[in-house]
């Protein structure tokens, strides 16, 4: 029972490890270049899953403020401005809205993974281009066939 609990509360890490190993296996063991690239994509997806699952909070929503919070803040701004004019007291606007960090998922991991997705697209595109070039030069996208062609001096 303890083992079951230990797995179920950390299921995201197990899933991420399994997916990442599938990707690693495809990258290392497969001879086909396209399959290698698919493995690379799976690997990247596993890391994205890992990061996003770190940022998850129980019962939290996406890291975008509610409409009410934003517009309540604007109303407060107007009130604060008028009171500033009348009383000459400077009020800090930062304390006007109350944001509970536990209500929103971690935005930092989402930003980092946006970067990772973009880099993933770039690497995949360049990888596909190199594969196409290999096919044009050697007539094959199988790694061992290309290596043999190179060894035999073509």
């Amino acid at each position: 029972m303890e083992i079951f609990e230990a797995i179920s509360t950390k299921i995201n890490y197990w899933v991420y490890i399994v997916i990442m190993m599938i990707g690693l296996y495809a990258m290392i063991a497969k001879n086909n270049m396209i399959k290698k690239l698919i493995g690379m994509s799976i690997f990247q997806t596993a890391i994205i899953l890992f990061y996003v699952s770190i940022g998850v909070k129980e019962g939290a929503t996406i890291p975008i403020l509610y409409h009410d919070q934003v517009h309540g803040a604007h109303d407060d701004h107007h009130e604060a401005d008028t009171s500033h004019g009348e009383n000459g007291v400077v009020e800090s606007h930062a304390t006007d809205i109350h944001i509970n960090p536990d209500e929103f998922t971690n935005p930092l991991v989402h930003v980092l993974m946006l970067t990772a997705i973009v880099v993933g697209v770039s690497t995949l595109g360049v990888g596909l281009a190199i594969t196409q070039k290999l096919h044009r030069e050697y007539g094959s996208i199988e790694e061992h066939e290309i290596l043999e062609l190179i060894k035999s001096g073509k």
Binding site: I64, L65, V70, F104, P107, L108, H110
Partner: peptide, 18 residues
């Protein structure tokens, strides 16, 4: 990351923290 959540709107007036 807590600071990003609480300070983003007062500092930049952008509701989407990401």
């Amino acid at each position: 990351s807590q600071g990003y959540i609480t300070e983003t709107f007062p500092e930049t007036s952008v509701p989407n923290m990401v």
